[in-house]
Design a protein around this nucleic acid. Sequence first.
DNA 1: TATTGTTATACTCTATAACTATA
DNA 2: TATAGTTATAGAGTATAACAATA
Lengths: 150, 150
Amino acid sequence: MAVLTNALDKLLGYQMRRATAVLMADFVRTLADFDMRPAEITTLLVIAENPDCSQSEVGEAIAIKRANMVPIIARLIERGLVARTRVDGRSLALRVTGKGAEHAVEAWRRIAGHEARFRERLAQEDLETVLAALPVLRAAVDEDEAAGET
Amino acid sequence: MAVLTNALDKLLGYQMRRATAVLMADFVRTLADFDMRPAEITTLLVIAENPDCSQSEVGEAIAIKRANMVPIIARLIERGLVARTRVDGRSLALRVTGKGAEHAVEAWRRIAGHEARFRERLAQEDLETVLAALPVLRAAVDEDEAAGET
DNA sequence: TATTGTTATACTCTATAACTATA
DNA sequence: TATAGTTATAGAGTATAACAATA
C-alpha cells in the first residue's frame, strides 16, 4: 500500500489530535483493569482531591457538562467509590468512600508511570515549553466558553 | 460556585486533551457552513492531495479504520465531492470532483486562518518546539499500532 | 430569577468481528 | 492466504433542550 502525502501534518491542531489519541490510548491501557471509563476516573480523582464538592463543580473543573455528569456520578456511586450527602434542597456534596480513595491512590500510581513514559521522550527544556504552551492554546476559547455558559 | 483544585492539570495527556478540544471546536466553527464533519473534511483534503488513492490508503494516512472510512466516502460521493473508479476487482481509485476541488481550496483557505489564530499565541521558537514535540509523542505507539494492524 | 440536578435525545468518533470478492 | 471494501454493532464522549425543585 502506497504511503500518501498529508499536508494536514503541518497543522498544529491535527498534530495535537493525533498525539492526544496516542496518549489517551495509553492512558486507557494503563487503567484498563479498573473497568472505568477515562471520564469516570478523572471524576473520581477530582472528587478525591476536593471533598464535599458538588457535581457541577466537578464538571466545571474537567469540562464535562452537568447533563453528562449525571451517569458518571451514578456509576461511581453504584460501584461504591463515591458517596453523596445532601447539602441543601438542590446541592449534593460528593466524597470518595474508603474504596474510592484506594482506587484513586492506585490510579495515581499508574498514571505516574504513564506520564513518565511520555515525558521521557522529550528533553527537559522542550517538555517545559510544551507544558507552558498547552494552557496558552486553550485559554482564549476557554474564556469564550465560560462566558457562554453564563 | 467554588473553583476546585485539579491535579490533572499537571499531566501532559490531560493538558493535551483539553487544548485539543479547544482547537477542534474552533476548527469545527471555522468550517461549520460546509455541513461536513471534521473526518469528512480531512478525508476530502487527503484525496485532493493524492489523486487515485485507495480508501485504505486514506484511512492509513489519517488514522481512520477501514470500516469507518466506508460511510465517510459514501457521503463524499453522495454529495458529489469525490468520485471513484474501479482499479481491479477489489480496489477503488478516489479522486475529488471539480466541486470537491473547490471545497478543498476554500477549506484550506479557512484552515489557514484557524491555524494562524492559534500559532500567533505562541512565540515562534516555542511553536517550533511544540511542532517538533508532537510527532515524537505519538511515534512509539503509532509503531505499535502499525505492528498490531499487521 | 438563577442554579442544581435530571431526563431524553442526537451526533461524532472509535472499535471489533465477520463477511464478500478478489489478488 | 492476504487484501479491499463492506456490514453490523457497540462503546465513549459531547451537545442541546426542557423540566422540577430549590435558593
